[in-house]
Amino acid sequence: MTTAEKAAPTVSITEKAAHQVRKLAQAEKSDSHGLRVAVQGGGCSGLVYKLGMESQERPEDKVYEQHGVKLFIDKKSVIYLVGTELDFSDGLNGKGFVFQNPNAKTACGCGNSFST
C-alpha cells in the first residue's frame, strides 16, 4: 500500500541522486530503494535536513516516487520541503546529497542547514 504521487511530485529527486540511493540500498542488501527525508530544528541556520534509508511507510508519511526511489517524508517536514529537489554532487568538492529548496532564504556554509 502506498500513496505515492507519480506526477509532479511536491518533493523530487534527480536521476543522479536516485542512482546513489539505489547503490546505497544495494550495499545494504535492501531492495526497498527508499529514503526518509526529514527536517529538524538545529544546524547553524535554524533548520537542518536529515536523511536515512527507509523501507517502511509510517502513518503520517507522504510518499513520493521517482526514478525507482521512494521518498518517505512526514507531513510536518513536507511543509518545509515543498518544491525541493534532492540532487547529488560528486567530484573533489562534492557534498553528497544536496537539497535545492526554494523555501530556504538563508543557508549555512556547509549547505546542510537553512532557514525559511
Binding site: A38, V39, Q40, G41, G42, G46, L47, D74, S77, Y80
Partner: peptide, 8 residues
C-alpha cells in the same frame, strides 16, 4: 523552542 520542534 516550539518554533524549531518539528518531528521531535
Amino acid at each position: 523552542i516550539d518554533r524549531y520542534t518539528i518531528i521531535e
